Amino acid sequence: MYELCPHCGLRYEVEPGYFVGAMYVSYAVSGGIALVLGFLLFYLGNDPQGWVYAAVIAPVMVLIAPINFRISRVVWLHYVAGINYVKGL
């Protein structure tokens, strides 16, 4: 992530360790996706064996990790910082 917003100059990391809380958001997002995939496998795959769950869900978690990293930081920034955005900028 950028240190400063290229548009408005907002400093993203207010203090060292500011985004530690984003780990909780990341955990929730990953858990939600794994849960949805597990339910889909259960209902659409007629409850396959345990290794099938692991073989499907684990690679998906690895593939979404970079996206999840950014999304969790953005959600944390919006939730904690309370930044007010002006429409049209």
Rank of each mutant, 00 (worst) to 15 (best):
G45K: 10
G88I: 05
D47W: 15
G17E: 03
P6H: 07
V52Y: 05
L40K: 01
L44R: 14
F39R: 08
G21P: 01
L4G: 05
I33D: 03
F42T: 08
I33L: 15
L40C: 07
F39S: 05
Y24W: 15
W76T: 02
V56H: 11
V20C: 07
L10R: 11
C8S: 10
Y85T: 09
W51D: 12
A65S: 15
G38D: 07
V36C: 08
N68F: 03
Y27Q: 09
F42Y: 15
A81C: 06
F39G: 01
I64R: 06
G88A: 04
L89F: 10
P66E: 00
Y12M: 05
I67V: 14
V60N: 12
V14E: 14
Y85L: 10
W51P: 00
L37K: 09
Q49R: 15
V74Q: 12
K87S: 15
R73A: 04
V52R: 08
E3G: 10
L35N: 13
L44A: 15
K87R: 11
G82K: 00
I57G: 00
L37D: 04
G31L: 09
V29W: 11
I64F: 07
N68I: 09
V60W: 03
P59I: 03
V52M: 09
V74S: 15
F19P: 01
G38S: 13
E13Q: 11
G31D: 07
G32C: 05
Y12C: 01
G45H: 12
A28C: 10
V74E: 13
Y79H: 14
V56D: 11
V62D: 10
I83P: 08
V80G: 04
